[in-house]
Each structure stands twice: as structure tokens, then as C-alpha cells.
Amino acid sequence: MDLSALRVEEVQNVINAMQKILECPICLELIKEPVSTKCDHIFCKFCMLKLLNQKKGPSQCPLCKNDITKRSLQESTRFSQLVEELLKIICAFQLDTGLEYANSYNFAKKENNSPEHLKDEVSIIQSMGYRNRAKRLLQSEPENPSLQETSLSVQLSNLGTVRTLRTKQRIQPQKTSVYIELGSDSSEDTVNKATYCSVGDQELLQITPQGTRDEISLDSAKKAACEFSETDVTNTEHHQPSNNDLNTTEKRAAERHPEKYQGSSVSNLHVEPCGTNTHASSLQHENSSLLLTKDRMNVEKAEFCNKSKQPGLARSQHNRWAGSKETCNDRRTPSTEKKVDLNADPLCERKEWNKQKLPCSENPRDTEDVPWITLNSSIQKVNEWFSRSDELLGSDDSHDGESESNAKVADVLDVLNEVDEYSGSSEKIDLLASDPHEALICKSERVHSKSVESNIEDKIFGKTYRKKASLPNLSHVTENLIIGAFVTEPQIIQERPLTNKLKRKRRPTSGL
């Protein structure tokens, strides 16, 4: 017993010596996670971090007073192994002897410093981030199933929210409404489509400006004509009531908005009720001829604005009016007729031209339509002016008669200019590109209106002035400009410049 007691005391002394060697000089306990400095002193990692955080910048070693920084600290694995072995020896000594260790306080702390507990403390002390800490805590505590279930439920809930957000973003663009038309193969669909197009076009005519009305009406008319041609002859009974509906809707729209509806009346003529396609083609032919005449008058307007600064050229074209007008009339009417003589009366030419125009518009179905009313009214106005011209010709002399006839021709041009508003800008460009020769010939008609105004002003003063002067240069210039014009009389060319000069002198006297 005595020997055993001596041996136990010796073992205890050895353990105490080893414990003092492996103590931390700051906390005076076994080193936890030993860290060595540049001066080869060993301290606990937790104690050194606490010391360095007390001051900004480098701190001093507690043993040798040298500078220490966080970067200079290094882990010493050898001392950590020695500490672990010492703890194992102490545990074995207690089991063999059955005696508690003399320094129970220190031993209890040593026992608490088992490797499992050290790992837990290291995970908390090290600044490795929240995710690494959570992982280490889960690994160190596998015995708690409640914690695992809560963490898994949190992760699953987070994943569910992310997935639901993604699915919502994908589903939202798919919620856009999609309209699908289910059509049938019955023959009544074509008639319904035609009526739908006509009503939609009328609404567009009321909303859209004048520049786009003609294009819309032309497209709708083409669509309706194609649909009529596709149907068989057996379905004509269905077409006639639908066309009557079209007429009623167009008349109502014309009564409500007459000014807006006139812009599309000329282009919509071939959508009118037709028994066969031949009647629609004839109407299209007549409309094309009318559009040609209207576009020519538009060309004359532009030329008149350009040549208004040259009064000499405008005056020299006075007698070329009849010849150029004959050529335009021959090209406007498709019928083959002989040219009228140069010395014939211009009023007779106008009456013949009106007689040619009237039969074209005397179809029984055309008179029933609303768009032809505008053309009939313009023709009636022309006839009224010609009836007035006959009365004026009986009273005035030959020279005054010529000037009045020219004035009436200008009035006719004004009437025809009203129809110019109905034609589109695209048709003007096509006419100029296809028929430049006709445009040059028809330019002379509009330029002549300037000389007509001068004659009217001469009649106000009650006299006409003449001068025997020749202007050969002007006649040559005008002959080169206009290709299809005829030779003019030299006496009238000489008379016109004198009248304008005298007018300039006598205007201030009349004002006084």
C-alpha cells in the first residue's frame, strides 16, 4: 500500500509539471487552440484576439514586449497534440486509482476541453461567416432531431417561395387574352364579311383624315369586289339584299356627314349593287376616265402658280386654248370622233363635250346612286353658264364675245376644280409618270385663266386698248415650251401688254 501511494504521488507531480508547461500565460489554463508568435511564445487563440482587439494597430507580447499583429500569429499543431495527450492521461489516472485529481477545478476545466467541445467553440470564435457556423452547429449536434426538422422546413419554405415567384413570372405573360375566330364554310359568310367591311370603312371615314380616306375606301372596294366574284351565280339572291343594306348604310352616312363622305364616293362606285361583274367593270372604266381629267386639272394648277410671274407667256397662250382643249377632250372620251376645226366657235365645242359626257352618266342604276348626284349638279351648273353665254354673245361685239367665252371657260374650270378634291395624291404621281406629254398640253388651259381676268378688268373701264407692237421672242419661247399647242394670231399678242400698262397708270386715278 505504501509503495502504491508513493507511485501515485509521483504520477500526480509529473502531471502537474506537464500542466504548468502547457498553461497559457494569460488565462493560466491549458492552452486552447495554441497560437505561436514571432517571438516563439505560445498563447491561446481566444486570449490573443481579445488582446489585439483592445487597441488599434499592433499590440505588445505580454512576455517579451514585442509587437504582435493578427497576421504574425501562427497555429502550432504540436502543442495541440500534447494537450490532447495530457487530458487522456489524466482521465486514465482517475480510472485506475479511483481518486480524484488534486486540482479539481483545473481538471474539471480540462475535462470540459474535450475535442468535441473544442470544435464547437472554434466554430463560434472564428469569423467564418453565418453559413459556415450553421453547418458546423448542425454537424456538432446530430442528436437534436427537432433542430434538423426546423432547419429543413425553413430551407424548403425558402425554396418554395423562390419557385413560386419564378412560376408566377412565367405564367403572367401567358394570361394575355387570345381571340380565335371559328369560321364556317357556308355561303352566307361572304355576304356577312362584305357588310362588315362596308360598315367598318364608314366608321374609318368618319375618323380618319382626308388623305387616308381614299386609300381605305379603295382597299375595301377591292375586297368586296373579290368576294362578289368568288361566289357562284346561284347565290345572287343572297347578294341582292346585302347590297341593298350597303346602299342604305352609305346613304345614311352621306346624310350625316356629306363633306366627309364625298371624298370616298368616287372610289367606292364599283361596290354599288350589281347584278353581274360586267356592270362593275364598266363603272370602273368610267371612274378611271374621270380621275384622269381631274388629275390633269391639278397639274394645271401647279403650272399656273409657276407661270404667274410671267405675264407675257400667259398672254401669248390665249389663242392656243381651243387647240389644246380639243386634244384633251379627244383623250378624255374613249369614243372615236373627228377633231373640230380651228376656226369653230369654242362654245360649240363645249356643248358637244357636254353631250358626250351626259350619255356616260345616263345609266338607270347610276342615277339612283348618291355619288353621281355631285356630277349631275356640276353638269347642270355648266349648262347654266353656257345659256348665259349665249345671251352675252348677242349683245357684245366679236372681240368682247371672245373674252366672255374665255371667262366662261374659266368658270367651267372652277367647277371642275371642285372635283379635284376627290382624287388622291398617289394617283397624281402615277398620271405624271405615265403621261407626261398630256400633262404639258393640259398646262396651257390653266395658264389661260390669267388672260381671262385681264379681259374682265378691261370691260370694267369700258374700253380695250391696242398697240401695234411685235414680240417675236415671246412667241418662239412659248412654242418651244408647249409641244401640242397651235400657232397664235400676232394681233392679239400685241394687244395684251398695252392693256396691263394702261391699267397700272389709271388705277390711282380711279381711286381718287
Score class of each variant (00 low, 15 high):
S151H: 02
V122Q: 09
V83S: 01
C44K: 01
R133N: 13
Q19C: 13
G98N: 00
P58W: 15
S157F: 09
K110P: 15
S59C: 12
H41W: 01
E29I: 01
Q155H: 13
G57L: 07
A134N: 11
N53S: 11
Q169A: 07
L22F: 09
S140M: 09
R136S: 14
Y130P: 07
Q172T: 07
T164S: 13
E33C: 01
Q126P: 04
D120Y: 01
V178Y: 08
E121T: 00
R7W: 03
H117L: 03
R71C: 10
Q81W: 15
I89M: 14
L22G: 01
T190A: 12
L152S: 13
K32Q: 02
Q54E: 06
Q19N: 12
S184K: 11
P115N: 03
K88P: 01
C39G: 00
L51A: 05
F43V: 14
P34H: 15
R133V: 10
I90T: 04
D120L: 09
S127R: 12
R78S: 14
K20A: 02
R7M: 04
S76A: 11
E23L: 04
D185P: 13
E121Q: 11
G129H: 03
S151V: 05
T176E: 10
S157P: 09
S59M: 08
K70C: 02
K294G: 02
E33Y: 08
S153P: 10
E100F: 12
S80R: 14
P34V: 05
F46E: 02
E85D: 00
E181P: 10
E143Q: 12
K110L: 14
L6P: 13
R7Q: 08
K110D: 08
N16M: 15
P25D: 01
L138E: 13
V191Q: 06
P25G: 14
P209A: 15
K45G: 08
R163P: 03
L118R: 11
E188R: 08
E84F: 00
L137S: 12
N53I: 13
I42M: 15
K110R: 02
S153L: 06
M48S: 05
E116I: 12
K65I: 04
D189W: 01
Q155E: 07
E181D: 15
N132Q: 15
N103H: 01
